[in-house]
Amino acid sequence: MADDLMTMLRETVEDYRVIRKRHGYLHVSVPRERVMEVIVTAKSRCGKNVLQLISAVDRIERDIFQLTWILESTEDASIFMVSADYPREGCKVPTLKDMWPSAVFFERELREMFGIEFPGNPRQDEDFLLEGWEGIPPMRRDFDTLEYSMKTYGERRKREHVDPRRLIAEHTGEWDTPVPSRKEKS
């Protein structure tokens, strides 16, 4: 089973990288130009006939979105995961709506949560979970969710937390030492 896939990968793409391989499970990373080719071949030749999920991870440090297509075979329940990296800005990914109609929903979700565009998906601009969302998509890591929540939804409790260290400062009055040995950053 996995051998099928490995043969297929060797024939289709040269520079793939195996991330993890177990019995009935294979996760590979391929260049983004070849990812559709790999998925199509996996469906047609290797019997991966179910699209379980399309997921995205915001790898902000490397300025990429890592998209992963999770395919499953109904014959032996084996899983094949294909990952590819896309640039964060103006991220455009081909749609899979013609191969799996359910892909429309996964793609709409990614479009809403990360702002990843799927040109060719006819329903990609429809609201999915967030209705009328404006601004940075919420699952992007440069979106400050706490700040947004406090600004939009407020909080009931006015915090009255006292840091034990500050209290000590009040109590002793000697928190500020006569001579700071460190030069203040100006």
């Binding site: 915090r159 209290l167 002793t172």
Partner: peptide, 29 residues
């Protein structure tokens, strides 16, 4: 969940190492 605030219940007792702050638990969190 930021449910616990330390609130002052009395003046601190430095010799015993007691800040006299006690946790206030917020069941909204």
């Amino acid at each position: 969940n930021e449910a616990i605030d330390m609130v002052k219940v009395a003046d601190a007792d430095p010799e015993k190492g007691d800040s006299k702050l006690r946790p206030m638990v917020d069941y909204g969190r």
